[in-house]
């Protein structure tokens, strides 16, 4: 890779860093004064957390990103992108959809965003299908029980 992409792909979020690296990034933020640290250092730590495999760390990373989003108005658009990826990773698809939809509204022609949106939608549909499956199962079960009940009653 000769050049660093402007934005990470979804794949990037699934490549965890070494815990040592994360720890150093955290130390940088702490040494710069926690909340007063520069946006970049805070983002570094947040992104490192999101890349990790632990759900709680990912969530903390999203929380930090949300703070950055609130604080740095000039970085909001990119932050939304990262937030979408983060939420996608922690399986918060409704949140991810919300973010990516907002992004899409503002940049309707960005292929990266379109791609991301597609992936999020796909996931949600899958979930929905699963939900329907579960629901139908439940209904079927209930019907069966009701049927049995009726039967027994009839008797």
């Amino acid at each position: 890779m000769s050049k660093i992409d402007y934005l990470p792909t979804l794949q990037d979020a699934y490549e965890p860093l070494l815990p040592q690296q994360v720890e150093i990034l955290r130390q940088i933020v702490v040494s710069e004064g926690g909340d007063a640290a520069s946006i970049q250092s805070r983002f570094n730590y947040a992104w490192a957390l999101i890349k990790s495999n632990d759900v709680n760390n990912q969530r903390l990373g999203i929380k930090l990103l949300t703070d950055i989003f609130k604080e740095a108005s000039s970085r909001r658009r990119e932050c939304l992108y990262y937030l979408t990826i983060g939420c996608y990773k922690v399986n918060e698809f409704t949140m991810a959809r919300r973010y990516v939809n907002t992004l899409r509204e503002n940049e309707p022609n960005n292929s990266q965003i379109i791609q991301l949106q597609k992936m999020v939608e796909n996931k949600i549909q899958k979930e929905a299908w699963m939900g329907i499956a579960v629901a139908t199962g439940v209904v079927a079960g209930a019907a069966a029980i009701a049927g049995m009940f009726m039967k027994s009653k009839r008797r």
């Binding site: 108005s73 292929s111 965003i113």
Partner: peptide, 18 residues
């Protein structure tokens, strides 16, 4: 807060994939 500033012209455009 989600919509504020995101649609603001000041914020730079994300680099388009193309």
């Amino acid at each position: 807060i989600l919509n504020e500033n995101v649609s603001n012209g000041k914020t730079k455009l994300l680099l388009d994939g193309t």
